[in-house]
């Protein structure tokens, strides 16, 4: 039997032992299901759910423009839903960013004790079930809900605002859900920002706006991009928030996929839609990585 005798060999063996279980776990529970989905997306649906093992690219055709001419005409409705989802997820990213960026600066300037309290408060929502929290938002946003009563009570509006079951309600809900995801990476990069850089910039003649654009923004950009990606990906495929706060009126790609798998029992089409979501996210990530490496290169080229 091979006996490790050098320290390096022993360390290698230990690493091997430690890394093997998670690797196998990931392979079985992540790669295999993903493979199943990829394969399913190229099959035909069975009559009562399940799949028929015949190759077909019509699932993608239905989405992208080459529908099965025997049964239906091409309908861009799925592309529309896809675009709606991208738009809602994008707006969610913007609104979480808008809330978290100043908050991150504010909290990072506090003393240790206060900082910890606020960081805890940011993560507090995780302690309550997501569905319960979203139903609380239903109570707040519905026409007879807290928000409308407060607004009409103060005489700011005459009739209750129609917020619930609109895009706005979905954005509010997703913003609420994803704020911690945006906050933590942003906070990490804001916390690291050296205050003396801001002073140095002012010392060299820059106004506050110039300092923000030339120093603060570039220095915190990794946090902004990181937070945006972490919010955008789950927001794009989210189906709980639109189904509770968007009702039947707002359909996001996540809801569509859920329907295909559960009500419509069209697994291949659902799988194809899932692949589309994954594809667009992957595309975004690759673009981001390319952007980062290009920035590195220009920094060196200058």
């Amino acid at each position: 039997m091979w006996k490790p005798n050098s320290l390096a060999q022993r360390r290698k063996l230990m690493l091997f032992g430690l890394l093997t279980p998670p690797t196998i776990f990931l392979a079985i529970f992540f790669i295999v299901p993903l493979g199943i989905m990829i394969v399913y997306s190229f099959l035909e649906p069975g009559l009562y759910g399940g799949v028929v093992w015949t190759f077909s690219d019509l699932n993608y055709g239905r989405i992208l423009g080459w529908a099965d001419s025997k049964y239906e005409k091409f309908d861009p409705v799925y592309l529309g839903i896809m675009l709606t989802s991208v738009r809602l997820a994008g707006l969610t990213v913007l609104s979480t960013l808008f809330i978290c960026y100043p908050a991150a600066f504010w909290i990072s300037r506090m003393n240790e004790e206060k900082k910890n309290i606020f960081l805890f408060l940011i993560t507090l929502p995780f302690f309550v079930s997501l569905v319960v929290r979203l139903f609380a938002w239903v109570l707040i946003l519905r026409p007879t809900g807290f928000l409308n009563q407060a607004l009409t009570g103060m005489g700011l509006v005459n009739a209750p605002l129609e917020i619930i079951y609109t895009d706005l309600a979905v954005i509010i809900g997703m913003t609420y859900v994803f704020i911690p995801f945006m906050f933590l990476p942003l906070y990490a990069s804001v916390e690291k920002l050296d205050m003396s850089l801001i002073e140095a910039s002012a010392d060299l003649g820059a106004t506050k706006l110039q300092t923000f654009r030339r120093v603060i923004l570039p220095a915190t950009l990794p946090g902004i991009v990181g937070g945006s990606i972490i919010v955008f990906i789950p927001a794009l495929g989210n189906f709980i928030v639109p189904s509770i706060l968007g009702g039947a009126k707002v359909l996001m790609i996540g809801n569509l996929i859920e329907q295909q798998f559960l009500s419509a029992r069209n697994w291949p089409f659902g799988a194809a839609l899932g692949m589309m979501v994954m594809g667009s996210v992957l595309f975004l990530l690759i673009y981001y990585v390319k952007l980062l490496s290009r920035e590195d290169q220009t920094a060196e080229a200058n």
């Binding site: 050296d194 003396s196 850089l197 002073e199 140095a200 910039s201 002012a202 010392d203 060299l204 003649g205 820059a206 106004t207 030339r214 120093v215 570039p218 220095a219 920094a299 060196e300 200058n302």
Partner: peptide
């Protein structure tokens, strides 16, 4: 501060880490 005709060399230099040496020098 940004209008005063003085410049400071900071204790820990406070160089901009995202800029090259030349861009740091060129900043003002």
């Amino acid at each position: 501060a940004h209008q005063r005709p003085v410049n400071t060399v900071f204790q820990k230099y406070a160089l901009f880490p995202h800029l090259s040496v030349a861009r740091n020098v060129a900043y003002s």
